[in-house]
Amino acid sequence: MLYLWLKAFHIIAVVCWFAGLFYLPRLFVYHASAEDAPSRERFSVMERKLYRGIMQPSMVLTLLLGAGMLYLNPAWFKQGWLHAKLTLVFLLIGYHHVCGAMLKRFARGENGRSHVFYRWFNEVPVLFLLAIVILVVIKPF
């Protein structure tokens, strides 16, 4: 029963984390296109609140709840799909922190990239989501 509760809240945390991972780069697209100071400031505030208020807590909960499920199912460590998934999660944490670094550059007014770059950057979490869900559901290894 505990496992099912951990799994339910893990899925909720993952959904919230990915919502932020999808939306923050989209805000970067708009921020990079903003031409006036009030708009740039508004985007900086929105980005900061999203990152600190939703993305960070969701990422931490995702990791803690996932660790709890692994604790209850240590046999999964012998399965290749889990190793592939954890590698992708590790890389996704890196993407998350790259977003945080970009957020700080925008806040300092030091963005040097166009909105086109951020449109492409915005697609990266989709690839992670596809791969992770397929690994968890199909367990191909």
Rank of each mutant, 00 (worst) to 15 (best):
17 W>K: 11
95 Y>N: 00
84 A>E: 15
61 L>N: 01
102 M>Q: 10
97 H>R: 02
132 I>W: 02
8 A>I: 04
138 I>Y: 15
75 A>M: 06
83 H>M: 13
57 P>Y: 09
66 G>R: 04
113 R>F: 14
84 A>K: 13
1 M>H: 06
35 E>Q: 11
110 E>K: 15
105 R>N: 03
66 G>F: 05
51 Y>H: 11
22 F>I: 14
81 W>P: 14
26 R>P: 02
61 L>S: 14
91 L>K: 06
62 T>N: 11
41 E>K: 13
66 G>M: 08
37 A>H: 11
136 V>Q: 05
80 G>Y: 14
131 A>K: 12
79 Q>T: 15
104 K>T: 10
114 S>M: 07
54 I>S: 01
46 M>K: 13
83 H>Q: 13
101 A>F: 00
31 H>I: 03
65 L>Q: 13
48 R>K: 15
90 F>E: 05
136 V>M: 11
89 V>G: 06
136 V>E: 06
120 W>Y: 09
68 G>W: 00
95 Y>R: 05
92 L>T: 12
51 Y>W: 10
63 L>E: 00
94 G>D: 00
94 G>W: 02
86 L>R: 09
49 K>L: 06
57 P>L: 05
22 F>P: 12
35 E>K: 12
93 I>W: 13
139 K>D: 11
13 A>F: 07
95 Y>M: 00
9 F>C: 11
34 A>H: 05
109 G>M: 03
52 R>T: 05
140 P>I: 09
22 F>Q: 12
44 S>P: 04
85 K>G: 10
40 R>Q: 10
91 L>I: 11
20 G>Q: 04
82 L>S: 11
109 G>E: 05
115 H>V: 08
120 W>E: 03
83 H>Y: 12
48 R>G: 03
117 F>K: 01
9 F>Y: 14
134 I>N: 06
128 F>T: 09
130 L>F: 14
7 K>M: 05
38 P>F: 11
14 V>G: 00
23 Y>H: 01
129 L>T: 07
22 F>H: 12
36 D>Q: 10
5 W>D: 14
61 L>D: 02
132 I>S: 05
73 N>M: 04
88 L>F: 15
84 A>C: 13
30 Y>C: 02
62 T>F: 03
28 F>E: 07
59 M>C: 15
11 I>L: 10
74 P>D: 00
112 G>R: 14
86 L>W: 03
105 R>H: 01
113 R>T: 08
